[in-house]
């Protein structure tokens, strides 16, 4: 069992480094949006999700409603349900319900990718090790970003506000390049989003993301239903 923890901790080192830099951007974003360092750290420790946290920070800063934040998190993070479902089948028989309740906290895109790439069964120690080192990077990076946000010159923090969006581009653009179906739904989502932003201005940001994302994904599911094999292999590059 000890060995499993160790291999999980080692396997998670690349995620630790990646999370450290990405969550630095989250910390800056939170700080620019008026959250305190403590609030930013609690946000990252409690949520462990990039896109959801960015959307959440935006809604908090814009004074959005609780319903808006619930609906936004639900749609943005719904993909975790699919990953959880898939991991659930790969989990070792030793994963009892209490262990599952704890490990659920750490189902992110990268952790999911590592766990599903493992040839052996996923044990609580292995997954737990990955989650601990990954979450440490996520929380530490947020702390550094939020603290630096008030120390660094405005020119630097301003420029760093684009980092998270750059990361999102790095996820959807290569996927759209490789897969024409993804290209179509991504373009549809972007166009709809611009429409809501510049023309129909009465819908708030969080709801606009939900409507655009769902409408574009519906379009994709209608026009290009994916083949019968397991979609999990195509989900691994998400954050």
């Amino acid at each position: 069992m000890k060995h499993e923890w160790k291999s999980g901790l080692v396997a998670g080192i690349p995620i630790f480094l990646g999370y450290l830099s990405v969550s630095f951007g989250i910390g800056i974003l939170a700080s620019n949006a008026g959250l305190s360092v403590a609030e930013a750290v609690i946000l990252s420790a409690a949520n462990l999700t990039s896109a959801g946290q960015v959307a959440g920070i935006g809604i908090i800063a814009a004074g959005g409603s609780l319903l808006e934040i619930i609906a936004t998190q639900f749609v943005i993070n719904l993909r975790y349900a699919l990953m959880a479902l898939s991991l659930s089948q790969k989990a070792a028989p030793s994963l009892t319900t209490p262990k599952r309740l704890m490990l659920s906290y750490g189902i992110t895109d990268e952790i999911f990718a590592l766990c599903s790439a493992r040839e052996k069964d996923v044990t609580a120690g292995y997954m737990g090790g990955i989650i601990i080192i990954s979450a440490a990077g996520w929380i530490l990076g947020t702390f550094l970003g939020a603290a630096a946000g008030s120390i660094l010159p405005e020119a630097v923090t301003d420029a760093m506000g684009i980092m998270l969006y750059g990361m999102f581009v790095a996820i959807f653009l290569p996927a759209a390049k490789r897969d024409r179906r993804v290209c179509v739904v991504v373009l549809a989502a972007a166009l709809l989003s611009c429409l809501f932003h510049y023309v129909i201005r009465s819908v708030s940001g969080g709801f606009s993301v939900i409507i655009c994302a769902l409408a574009a994904a519906f379009l994709g599911a209608l026009l290009f239903p994916i083949p019968e094999e397991d979609p999990e292999n195509d989900q691994k590059e998400e954050v």
Binding site: V209, C212, G220
Partner: peptide
């Protein structure tokens, strides 16, 4: 199949809608 297709596309559409035009 429809639900699985929807789940397949949602991560990309969410990220695209969040990025453009907010970036």
């Amino acid at each position: 199949r429809f639900f699985r297709s929807l789940m397949y596309y949602i991560p990309y559409t969410v990220l695209a809608a969040m990025t453009i035009p907010a970036i």
